[in-house]
């Protein structure tokens, strides 16, 4: 109906743990239009005082929560909850159902990569990053 209102300009951050909150604070400084979603309202305490985005409490594995958090107008979604399976599920929903242009997902198990094949979802593995950093510090051998 109102096609004009579906302007994709929001940055949606799923999960407000240390990573989610850090990204949210950073994006807020850059003046982005941010929405942070978490199941626990307490986790929003991690956001800085100067954070200027929106927060939303809800279960992200429920489509209605994602819709209320304006996933339809998201230009990017960053999925950082502590559970790999939730992250994979939300990433797939964002790609298949809502076709969000940019999808970033944090996963702890590198084996999960096989489920992201061919879906144009960018993955972040904290474990691999730490390992690479360690190797680098030890003398550049990989």
């Amino acid at each position: 109906m109102k096609k004009a209102s579906i302007l994709k300009n929001k940055t949606l951050i799923i999960g407000c743990g240390s990573l989610g909150a850090t990204i949210a604070n950073k994006c807020s400084q850059e003046g982005k239009n941010i929405m942070v979603v978490d199941t626990d309202a307490k986790s929003f305490e991690r956001l800085s005082d100067r954070f200027s985005g929106y927060t939303f409490v809800g279960d992200v594995t429920d489509l209605s929560t994602l819709e209320e958090a304006y996933i339809t107008s998201a230009k990017e979604i960053i999925i950082t909850t502590g559970d790999d399976n939730t992250n994979l599920f939300v990433a797939h929903i964002a790609r298949v159902i809502y076709n969000v242009p940019q999808i970033y997902v944090r996963l702890s198990d590198p084996d999960s990569e096989i489920l992201l094949k061919g879906m144009d979802i960018k993955s972040i593995y904290p474990l691999e990053l730490s390992f690479d950093k360690f190797n680098l510090m030890r003398g550049g051998r990989k």
Binding site: T61, D83, D84, N85, T86, L88, F89, I114, L115
Partner: peptide
Amino acid sequence: NRDCDNYVSCLLAKKV
């Protein structure tokens, strides 16, 4: 018990 766990295991079984 959890929907997303079931989803991931089914998808693995099917695709992999």
